[in-house]
Structure formats: C-alpha cells, structure tokens
Amino acid sequence: MDNLTHGLVGALIGQAGLKRRTGLAMPALIFGANLPDIDAGCVVWGTESLAMRRGLTHGPIALVLLPLALAGFLWWFDRWQARRGTRPDTRLPVHFGWLFALAFLACLTHPALDWMNVYGIRLLEPFSHRWFHGDILFIIDVWLWAMMGLGLILSLLREKRRGNWRTPARAAIAGALAYIGVNAGITAKNEADGALYAQMREMTKSEVIALPLPIEFWRRDLVVGGNGAWFKKEAIGPDDALLAPISDHICKFPDPRIGSANRPDVAAFLFWSQAPFALRNPDGGVTIHDARFFDERTRGQFSVYLPDTPCIPLR
C-alpha cells in the first residue's frame, strides 16, 4: 500500500491509546509502519528493481532488526535532547522496551497491508523467494484514506479539548478492518467465479487473480490462466460475460533461460511476475507483460522487450 495509508495506521494505533505507554511512541508507530519501505530507493534501477522491492526489508529478519534500530535511535535521541537541555518537559519517560514493542507492532502492519494488493510481497525472504498476494485492495484506496483520516482528525480534536480521544481512533480501526473484510469477501466471490469460468473452458491448473479497481472498490477485473496463456473479464462487462483472451497477439512464451541470458532486467521481471505472457511486437520480437498490470495505465511500466525473440503464435 501507499505510505500515507501505512502512516495513518501507525497514527491510529497510537491514538487508540498505545501512545501513552512511552515517550516518543508516535514516532515509533508512524515511522515503524513505513520502515520496511526503505527499499524504495532501488527504483533507480528501473525494471531490475522489481526483484528488489518488497523482499528482504519486508521479511521476518528485517521485521525484528528494523524496529530494534528505530527504537535504539529514538532512545538515543531522547537522551541526546536531555543532555542538550532541549527535551520537552511534557514528554513521557522513554522506555526502550515499549519503543521496540510499538515499532515492532507497527512494522508488522506493513507487510499485512502490502499483502492485500496484487503486487504482492515476499513474506518469507530470505528463507523463501515465494510471492504472496491477497488481491483484496487497490494499492491506493481513497476510502481507507477517508475513513482513517477522519478518525485521526476527530481523535486529535477531542484530545485537544480533553475529551475521549481514544474512541474515534478505535472506531476508525474497527471500520477499516470491516471494510477490508468486505473487500476480502468480494475478492473471494470473484475468484470463485473465475475458477468456474476456467472449468467451463477446461483450463486445468489455472490461476485466478481478482484485480481490485481504484475508487470502485466493489468491482473486480479477473485474469485467469497460466503457462503464458491468459484470459480476462472486465468488471464493466455484462455479468454473464465469459473470459476473453487478454490479447489477440499472444505468442508462445519463450524459454526463460534464453530470454533472460545477459538481460538482468528480463531476469528480474520473470522473478517478479506472477502472470507472465508474451505479446507480438509490431516492430518484431516479443514483449513480455504481466496479466495483472496490462491495462492502459500500467502496461508500459511492467514489461520487457526481447527484440531478437521470434513470435511463435500460441495455439
């Protein structure tokens, strides 16, 4: 998910009452909720960054070491301010154990949220390179923003007026969890429909992926297939519409060992892709896409071109 969503989750956890456990609890929660995204800098490597993101910094070792480092820094910072005489008098005493516990809790919310979209996460890195994706939420969900943002604002306003500031934050967390549950049900229903379509087409060992849409959280596109052959059903189509080939120009998927030879960008793309397929390029060769990101908004960002690979029509 986007960093605003992660930050709102951390802030709401604090406003729900946990920020009273130690001084500097809110920085521990907000920064902790975003800390696994320190790997974002690797985007300077372009396509190769697909193999670097949402891996090592989102895995079990990092989810212990990153909160430990954050807690250590905040503990040091508090003492540094005290030595300089700039420590705020209103700050609660800082307890390292609570700082670590809160940063750890916040860090855990990060992979939980990242798992909910179709991009996925390597949850067990470095012990396993397997990708996990829940297909529940679009990567930027404005409804979550609105719900959690409103809860946070109301909580802060009540706190300023010395009212019950915990209740709005807790209500926002409960509402967000309910919203996620509803979306999980919508995804499960759509993926069950996709499995039925696959059976009708006698597509064995097919993967079914529901694609949440921006804004219209109740809609899902569907992609179904495998082995380089993918079919798609648009959410805007009639309810009884069957799957159609994702393109009329699909090629037989090239041998990954040949396609990725001396091409780190291709190797990275194939490592990341969960639904790869090859498309005939008008200028010759083939372009490899991912069926999850083949709409007009994203296909240019998630593809690699193999100019010397001939297109063998998929039969």
Rank of each mutant, 00 (worst) to 15 (best):
W75P: 04
E125R: 03
L35M: 14
R161S: 07
W75N: 02
G72A: 04
L50D: 02
M147W: 00
V118L: 08
F77Y: 04
I140S: 09
A101N: 11
H95R: 07
S128T: 14
T47V: 08
P126F: 11
I139V: 14
R122D: 01
A169M: 06
P36R: 07
E125F: 11
P93Q: 09
P126L: 07
A69T: 08
S128Q: 07
L63P: 02
A82K: 11
F127T: 01
A178D: 00
L177M: 04
G72M: 00
P36C: 13
A146E: 15
N34P: 02
R53H: 12
P60F: 13
W165C: 12
V64A: 07
N117V: 06
W165A: 11
D78T: 01
L68D: 01
L157A: 07
R91T: 15
E159L: 07
G163V: 10
G120H: 03
G149R: 00
I140D: 15
P168N: 13
I153P: 15
V118F: 05
L92N: 04
F96Y: 04
L105N: 13
D78S: 12
R79E: 05
A103W: 03
G59K: 11
D141V: 09
I38Q: 06
L56P: 12
W75V: 04
S155T: 09
L108G: 10
A169K: 00
L68R: 05
M52I: 08
P36G: 05
